[in-house]
């Protein structure tokens, strides 16, 4: 920032090109370069969002047109739609378990792989592999059949004499198959943790050892505090991703949210209202509540971050 300010006079003394203003600004070139994003932003994000907000106050149906109905959609959502609350509770349960599990696995494995031993590159690739294919339909299909009644999990349990369980049909278990699937795909946060761990100076651990600190003390007093910015970043990204989970739930329950709506994730329910029964006004209202909740949660995490995120410099991440 500052060094370009120092160069200003030199630039100003050049013969002024068209569109170049006095302060070294080049509005024409700047807007030309960002114009693809700018146009797409308005056409495919901003205007649709404004429309979506407006639709939230209508009963828009793609075949029947629309009427302005005020807050009726929100009234229906909060007071009259049992499935809405089931989908909220399924999503909350999923996020509350899947996100911490994923982060714990990610950090644990990252610490295991933070060594110079031979073969670490291979292990890192192997632990990351499930995440590379994680969002695909193929893996969701695989997971569904792993937890099938005759599937892999029941076959393994059978060898220990356990009776087979219908994992995907049982209201208590179905969501856990999805939580496990999420926990299995900890590759991205793992790599980010790994990069963070490499930043921690080795001398800190050495001097702690000299002072007689054991492994747990070193982890709690050195590793965790210095890693909080990375944990913070991973937490936000994973929270948002968790709330938007769609494909896996769609494939594993065949788009139904069964059993008893216990896997009816919020994104799935918005899809069903918007594109199966075409209640697009209602679906838009739900989408805006989702946006508000994600914004609120992100704001809370940011606000509280000053209490638990440790920055070595005051520059931030």
């Amino acid at each position: 920032m500052t060094d370009s300010a120092l160069r200003l006079p030199r630039r100003g003394s050049r013969k002024r090109k068209e569109g170049r203003s006095r302060w070294g600004e080049n509005n024409l070139a700047g807007y030309l370069f960002i114009s693809p994003w700018l146009i797409a932003f308005f056409a495919f994000a901003f205007i649709p969002m404004v429309l979506s907000f407006a639709l939230a106050f209508t009963d828009y149906h793609i075949l029947r047109g629309w009427n302005f109905i005020g807050l009726d959609n929100f009234q229906r959502m909060f007071y009259n739609d049992v499935r809405y609350w089931r989908s909220v509770s399924a999503t909350v349960k999923y996020v509350v378990f899947a996100v911490p599990l994923r982060l714990v696995f990610a950090l644990g494995v990252a610490m295991l792989l933070n060594t110079n031993r031979r073969g670490v590159a291979f292990y890192r690739a192997a632990f990351y592999a499930p995440s590379v294919v994680g969002a695909s339909v193929a893996v969701a299909v695989m997971w569904r059949e792993v937890f099938n009644r005759e599937g892999l999990v029941n076959a393994i349990l059978g060898q220990f004499g356990q009776p087979s369980i219908w994992w995907l049909g049982h209201p208590d278990y179905a969501i856990w198959t999805l939580i496990l699937l999420a926990a299995w795909q900890f590759g991205s946060p793992m790599l980010i943790f790994l990069a963070g761990l490499k930043q921690i100076p080795e001398q800190l651990y050495e001097s702690a050892s000299i002072d007689g600190a054991n492994g747990i003390q070193k982890f709690v007093r050195i590793t965790l505090p210095l890693l909080t910015p990375v944990i913070f970043f991973n937490l936000i990204m994973q929270l948002i991703a968790g709330f938007m989970t769609f494909t896996q739930a769609f494939i594993i329950t065949n788009g139904s949210g069964r059993p008893l709506d216990t896997t009816l994730f919020y994104a799935l329910y918005v899809y069903k209202r918007g594109f199966e029964t075409y209640e697009m006004g209602y679906a838009s209202a739900m989408a805006w509540v989702m946006l508000a909740v994600i914004a609120l949660l992100t704001a809370i995490v940011f606000r509280t971050s000053s209490h638990w995120v440790y920055y070595e410099t005051d520059e931030g991440i």
Binding site: F41, F44, A45, I47, P48, M49, L51, S52, F53, L55, I62, I240, F243, M244, A267, V270, Y271, G274, F275, M280, A283, S284, M286, A287, W288, M290, L291, I294, A295, T298
Partner: peptide, 16 residues
């Protein structure tokens, strides 16, 4: 926009 759930965009996009 990185944090925006696409659910707030897809319905008007689809209509469009």
């Amino acid at each position: 926009t990185l944090m925006l759930p696409i659910q707030v965009q897809i319905i008007p996009q689809y209509i469009m």
